[in-house]
């Protein structure tokens, strides 16, 4: 009868049945709000992001925040051991994660973490990749699409030159990295379905 809200950002994914869904939600909200604010602060640091209209900044952040967080917290997922360490420091085995109701989305996250992790990016390369992820997010709702496209192009160019300057004889890494963008879109869609399915009991 326990109540579950299985998300690696949630410091208390399991609560007694006596706890209301509203309380579960509010305590979860206190966990993910700082993470969202961190993404916003990161976005402000992206050269050119703040030249976009405020409306477009909000739209990009709305559609891209989960994907940036997925990259940001990718290391919480251990694809070899099939464990996830939540932000509360607790590591959950696959059996426990399944018991928490985590299914195909979790499998896709393990897969993504393995692929991204295998590229062995440096922290600054990962940060620039996160910037590309954000500006590559879904553009429905964006007004000045041209400005976003230009920003994306500039950031992709910067990412390519950073990676190729460090690994001149590895021409496969950059394309492999860009292939992670559609993976993130798929994860985002799966995660959105989960969000939609989440209801707060009256």
């Amino acid at each position: 009868g326990a109540k579950v809200l299985a998300c690696p950002l949630n410091s208390c994914p399991v609560a007694p049945a006596s706890r209301s869904s509203q309380e579960m939600w509010e305590s979860f909200s206190q966990c993910f709000t700082p993470a969202v604010k961190e993404v916003v602060e990161f976005a402000k640091s992206i050269p050119g992001f703040q030249t976009l209209s405020q409306h477009d900044q909000v739209m990009l952040l709305k559609s891209g925040t989960f994907q940036v967080l997925m990259v940001r917290f990718c290391s919480l997922f251990d694809p070899k051991e099939r464990t996830v360490t939540f932000l509360n420091g607790q590591t959950y085995s696959l059996a426990s994660l399944r018991a928490l109701g985590m299914g195909s989305l979790l499998d896709a996250m393990f897969d993504f973490s393995e692929k991204l992790g295998s590229l062995g990016l440096e922290p600054d390369e990962m940060a620039l990749f996160m910037a590309v992820v954000l500006v590559s997010a879904d553009r429905s709702g964006i007004v000045e699409v041209g400005a976003v496209e230009q920003l994306q192009e500039n950031l992709i160019k910067a990412l390519r030159s950073l990676i190729t300057s460090r690994r001149p004889d590895d021409s496969t890494l950059f394309p492999k990295l860009l292939l992670r963008l559609p993976d993130l879109r798929t994860l985002n869609n799966q995660h959105s379905d989960k969000l939609l399915a989440f209801r707060i009991d009256p």
């Binding site: 709000t33 916003v40 602060e41 405020q54 709305k62 559609s63 925040t65 969000l195 989440f198």
Partner: peptide, 27 residues
């Protein structure tokens, strides 16, 4: 098709975090 982000109140958090910068600039 509902807006999944609204389930989290995401837009509100984002606007406040962005506005935080606007208020600083105006001061």
């Amino acid at each position: 098709f509902g807006d999944p982000a609204s389930n989290l109140g995401l837009e509100d958090i984002i606007r406040k975090a962005l506005m935080g910068n606007l208020e600083e600039r105006q001061e």
